[in-house]
Nucleic acid binder design. Structure first.
Lengths: 261, 261
DNA sequence: ACCATCTAGTCGTCTAGATGAGTTGCTGCC
DNA sequence: GGCAGCAACTCATCTAGACGACTAGATGGT
């Protein structure tokens, strides 16, 4: 067990950089250099207080900084740990290709099982609603919409929360209004109903999660979300579905292939 | 001027929710309801201390929470303000289409001026380097690469930092190795040199910024970054360029159009 | 009119404690 | 051996106060 001094060094009293930032710097360096690896426990607050000769609030400020940066997570009663990087799921831009729609399982399930993970879907809710202004504008201002909400989990960890909106006049009394819309999902049903899909628009934003999103996705502090809004258009140019997805950013890499036209 | 009580209400002493979280909840509600608008000053720490009857650290914890959520920013000596949402720049998936490459200006400059903003590019650096393992793998393991670094600003605000990597054997002694590669940028030069571009791969991640990125992009706390890695392939399937871009997430919406094949 | 200075108000940093609550492992009883 | 309970350690929350640094407006002199 190397001494704390050899791992963290000491503070520079002549520096005008705040002490808690210097402590965070030392810890960050140690993590970057591999002195602490993913999942390792960092020195306890008490140990850092004694090592650097500062008060506990100063040490806590330093640790809070690392958590905001997404480098560390604290666990009450246990310690502060280097944040483990969960395996990421790669979303290819052809994930809605027709050739992926023939199977009975959802794209999420197929991909997850192929990657050796245990997929789950919960919070399934299907209901009719008045659309928000934004959703209504994207769908051509329907009075009401069908909303399909669900949460996706990998190996028990929630990673994504999605809501699909469809104009109610289009979805009412169809399999799309059922909790399970059948093989190939709602896109297969839409095509069967004569809405041949032409293209999708996807808008991507990144931001910090709301408190509700932190609860739903069990997000550690320092983990942003990716907010993806996809609109599906049929061959007549009508927007037939808007899917609003919030993803834990540490669980995803989005991948797009663009032709160089 | 409405009283603080009418805007913020009081705490619930029977709740087991931490006091600083309750204070943050009250402030967040007030912001959501429009009682405080973008750019408005929140009550000072002293005012909140007196209103809620708690110590200053408790109030500061509450305000820190709002800043982590990206809802507020503090300004030393002035106060804590509801974070203004800067106008976002939308990046379309056809932004590298040939038809956009004819003009003398860069895509960034043209788009920014069209949107009425004042674009700048700085930190221009062009040099030869040994590639990192990741870049090397994407480019077919060249021994050395040409790296082109630049930072983009809109109306004086830095919004994006990008580095392009090209295999050195391909870029050496060409206009691409010049600070200004000429009209249409390096993609026009690559095509002139016989590398007809075929397609781009883009990988998108979101995460919290490193301290270096906070400095380079002047990021407020609670603002994540979007990390985009684009690889350009020529008609022979060779990777001719990798562009590594870090964007302030509050300044961008990425937009992709996907065919429903 | 201009500018330097003062001052009140603001957030930033740090100290030194107290109490509470979750986790873990040990100890001693059965 | 098994288990209940205790002790030690962890982070979470909160208090009360001190000093520093930055901002902006008021003051007053040139």
């Amino acid at each position: 067990m190397p001494s704390l001094t050899s791992v963290l060094g000491a503070l520079d009293p002549t520096s005008d950089r705040a002490v808690f930032r210097q402590i965070a710097d030392r810890l960050r360096e140690a993590i970057d250099k591999g002195r602490f690896k993913e999942g390792d426990k960092l020195p306890s607050e008490t140990e850092l207080v004694e090592h650097f000769g500062v008060s506990r609030m100063t040490v806590r400020n330093a640790l809070a900084l690392l958590q905001q940066e997404g480098l560390a997570v604290s666990e009450h009663g246990k310690g502060v740990f280097v944040r483990p990087r969960p395996p990421v799921r790669r979303l290819a831009s052809d994930r809605f290709a027709r050739r992926h729609r023939d199977q009975g399982k959802s794209a999420f399930t197929v991909e997850a099982e192929a990657a050796g993970s245990r997929p789950e879907v919960d919070s399934l809710e299907v209901k009719e609603e008045r659309p928000t202004q934004d959703i209504a504008a994207r769908l051509g201002s329907p009075r009401k919409v069908l909303a399909r909400r669900r949460r996706y989990l990998l190996d028990g960890r929630p990673v994504e929360f999605a809501t699909s909106y469809l104009p109610l006049d289009l979805a009412r009394d169809t399999p799309i209004a059922q909790p399970n819309p059948g093989p190939g999902g709602i896109y297969a049903r839409l095509e069967e109903m004569g809405h041949r899909l032409d293209h999708f628009d996807e808008e991507i934003r990144a931001r910090m999660p709301s408190p509700a999103e932190v609860r739903t996705l069990h997000l550690a502090s320092g983990v942003p979300v990716i907010h993806l809004i996809r609109t599906a258009f049929d061959a007549e140019g009508r927007a037939v579905e808007v899917c609003d997805t919030v993803m834990a950013a540490d669980a995803y890499v989005l991948s797009y292939q663009l032709p160089a036209t």
